[in-house]
Design a protein around this nucleic acid. Structure first.
Lengths: 361, 361
DNA sequence: CAGTGCAATGTAATGGATTACATAAAATCG
DNA sequence: CGATTTTATGTAATCCATTACATTGCACTG
């Protein structure tokens, strides 16, 4: 190629470029970029994906054209070819539950550090919706799923199961999971109530379909045993994690006429509902009844009194979940791991020593 | 083809199927399904996409094979070919803010009704993250974006801009938007405080970068004018929507020594922070100071006292946003619309008539 | 200076579906 | 019954980027 030749060609390219700039931005393809930059599609792709394989002059020229024309490679085509999307779906039952926010943040941090994106799916605990998101993985629209529910959707691809369970876990499953030691955590909370002198400790459980709720209940019972208190079945009920469920639970306990001086709730929202129901019955928290929640959601410190609760290491749960997911994607052969973190009791104003002779009758 | 021939072939197919069932589920392609079902790829595709084009016998046979082998079409390939993903990204600044939950729910309802899926992106109000999600649309991984922030990301494809603005809007933009009449809504709230006898009404504004916050401030000022009250600049400050900002605002007002008997806040979280700060200074809500929030988040009814606030029609905002998005995707030529909904004041316990002679000094 | 290796680039196959167009078979019509 | 339409199916092009493999040119070695 003579100097003349290449010069003429470059002018040609400029002409096309100017022309293109006049039209409303169109969608570009590698092919167009290649033509305009006077190289092959392979070189354009390399210039963008692995610049070190392309000579500096060519690389600069290509980048200039890409920038000038506002070219964005079609991710569908790319992902189809490479069979990965670098996209992870995080499934949460309820975005209205602030507990998950910080977990998500942990997930996103690690994802970002590793070049992954995260999209959130709200399932409202519906199996159908969970499966719909799982199907997106089966259909190769995402690389994996981090689920925060106790059900693990089926994703039949290659025998691999790019699923990680965060906050919850499934008994006897071989799914990588991160969660806290719920038995111990619930135990701490109840132990604390015991040290405050409480003996009639009510318990608002979560749905028994969820293993972590079973664990919390178990922690409650073990703590009572440690304190040589016999559990009173009339002071236990099940709620669905909503504030309303917390209110209903208190109504129920009161209607049963069983005295109690403390309530341990399986999550903060139910604790908030419980506090509301108690005060609407003229019972003061913590003077008449101590209340302990679970999770340490953001609002827990804004209730009045501020809520004593079990603080889950939310950020760490999220980070660990995403770390596991990346491990799994990098090497599908790594065996599933279960990682158990620990939780702390945060003492605020909703708990106080039992005042003797003050039990409700 | 003789009866014999087809019989033999069918047996063959059965053999392959059984064989496949023994192996761990592999990823299937149309091609394999076609081979096993003894049809062409086109027929398989038709049987799945437009069953009416395929004879019943063939359709059933294909569906049987699809089901038996657990075949899921590769969405990347499909989307690449059809140039649509039926996926919408909903961008929200902060998933921890419960205000958005219900908006999302409205979005998802309409999406579902129309065969779309929604994935959520949390931006933390970061431009970089907003743009990253926008790029997913440019890269054809999603069809459009519903953003709940006051910035509209650039998505240069075909001159179209598949973006809808929900809850917020951008001044002078030609983006379809749904939001409430914030001037009027804020006006109602302040009018109400005026009718309760309040005259020294403090205001905690939201970030002035957001037009809706400017509107709320404007509503506040207009209401004061209507009541012939001159605004006291010392009783206005700006917060960032967090509970902490609400607390700081009250500290500030108190430190300025300006008397006030009511506070109007640009969102509920700041109102919650304000209540907390007030009570930690020994001021009772509503006896000493009335507090009004904005949004009516779920927790608003669980504060003590329950929060009086402006209820946005959250579900309707979401539904309308998604409806607009679908319109836009179906016909890129439809001109952008702005839809303004109205909001109601919900009176709860955090507001009370001003007690004369009770102004703070 | 022939031979080897490397750097830069190109050609063409590939990923997995959809669909325009073509064809064969069956149904309908005059 | 031949002509025409309809129905069912197949063949092959297409969407767009990545990448294995091929090719070219040049530098370096013995």
């Amino acid at each position: 190629m003579s100097a003349d030749g290449s010069k003429r060609k470059r002018q040609g390219a400029k002409g096309e470029g100017a022309n293109a700039a006049l039209q409303p931005a169109r969608v570009r393809t590698v092919k167009e970029i290649a033509t305009i930059a006077k190289v092959s599609v392979a070189t354009v792709s390399r210039a963008l994906q692995r610049p070190e394989l392309v000579s500096e002059a060519t690389r600069l020229r290509i980048h200039e054209v890409v920038k000038r024309l506002g070219y964005t490679p079609n991710a569908l085509a790319r992902n189809l070819r490479t069979a990965r999307t670098r996209l992870i779906i995080a499934l949460l039952p309820d975005i209205a539950n602030p507990f998950f926010s910080e977990v998500i943040r942990g997930i996103e941090q690690v994802a970002y550090e590793n070049g992954y994106s995260v999209l959130l799916g709200e399932t409202q605990s519906s199996l159908v919706r969970e499966q719909a998101y799982a199907d997106m993985v089966a259909a190769r629209q995402a690389d994996g799923i981090i689920t925060m529910s106790h059900r693990v959707p089926a994703i039949p691809i290659d025998g691999r199961l790019p699923v990680v369970n965060a906050c919850e876990y499934v008994k006897d499953s071989n799914i990588s999971s991160v969660y806290i030691d719920n038995v111990a955590a619930a135990g701490f909370a109840v132990d604390y109530l015991v040290t405050l002198g409480h003996r009639d400790i009510a318990f608002i459980a979560g749905p028994s379909s969820s293993p972590i709720c079973v664990d919390r209940e178990r922690g409650y019972h073990l703590a009572l045993q440690r304190a040589k208190i016999s559990a009173n079945p009339a002071l236990t009920t099940v709620g669905d994690f909503s504030t309303e469920a917390g209110e209903r639970a208190i109504e129920l306990f009161l209607s049963r006429g069983q005295p109690f001086s403390a309530v341990f709730c399986s999550n903060d929202e139910m604790a908030i509902g419980a506090m509301r129901a108690l005060s609407s019955h003229g019972l003061r928290v913590p003077e008449d009844v101590s209340v302990v929640g679970f999770d340490d959601i953001r609002f827990a410190r804004y209730t009045s009194p501020p809520l004593t609760t079990v603080a889950q290491p939310k950020n760490a749960l999220g980070r660990e979940a995403m770390t596991m997911m990346i491990e799994l994607l990098n090497d599908p052969a790594v065996p599933p791991r279960k990682r158990v973190l620990s939780a702390d009791l945060v003492v605020r104003g909703s708990t106080a020593p039992r005042v003797t002779g003050r039990d409700l009758t």
